[in-house]
Design a protein around this nucleic acid. Structure first.
Lengths: 111, 111
DNA sequence: CTGTGTGCGTTCACTGTGTGAACGTAGGGT
DNA sequence: ACCCTACGTTCACACAGTGAACGCACACAG
């Protein structure tokens, strides 16, 4: 994950889709370690973007829910929009780079 | 620089364009520290992709040239081609991601 | 009512990577 | 003879990320 913000966005996405994920699950889905996942969740909590709720799951076992707060939903939308913008810029840049690369590869081949 | 290989490609590019660059210059152009640049150049040297040559520059001052060897030129072409392939894949992926993001941002806005 | 197993969040010693200030060297300028 | 500058090189340090280990809570079996 390039930026920390990207990581948080992914986390918010995953939690919005399924708040009952365990940190280990989340870690696997995010492609990072449990330690970092825990750290990331704590950051989301500190910002008030998620709240942690105990509940009993289907088998009456204690479990956690990581629920997005209204602020979390807002933040997610805001970050996603900025993320999109950045990706669009990357897209344009990549297009240019590919053109340049094609020329370079062609030039290399001709030598 | 994502992969180490990317860094080496950029270095080869810059050196091919101007073999008389100093390591500090190179570091700045690559966006990394002098230490890492030195390490990177050593790696290129070990692989036989560049050779280091002393010479006197215009003001009769001792200076270094980092010249691509024939193997270096080959390697650069090979890496560039692979790099292009990867970028094309990224381009396609990015396109898909942007579509998904647009939908997500739209959905967020409607809530 | 006790183990025992399982899955949870949490911690932290460790690792690996990158940094850039500091160093030795060599030449130019005064 | 002396500084000054620019070079490549080094290495103590910082920092982020890892994942094995831990304590805890609960379900379940004996």
């Amino acid at each position: 994950m390039a930026l920390n913000e990207d990581l948080q966005l992914q986390a918010l996405r995953l939690l919005q889709a399924d708040p009952a994920r365990s940190q280990r699950d989340l870690a696997k889905a995010l492609g990072i370690s449990v330690g970092r996942t825990n750290y990331c969740l704590r950051a989301l909590l500190d910002r008030g973007w998620i709240k942690i709720q105990n509940f009993r799951n289907s088998r009456n076992k204690r479990a956690y829910l990581y629920l997005l707060t209204p602020q979390g939903i807002d933040a997610k939308a805001r970050i996603a929009a900025r993320f999109l913008q950045r990706k669009e810029a990357e897209y344009a840049a990549l297009q240019a780079e590919i053109a340049r690369l094609r020329a370079e590869v062609k030039a290399d081949a001709e030598t």
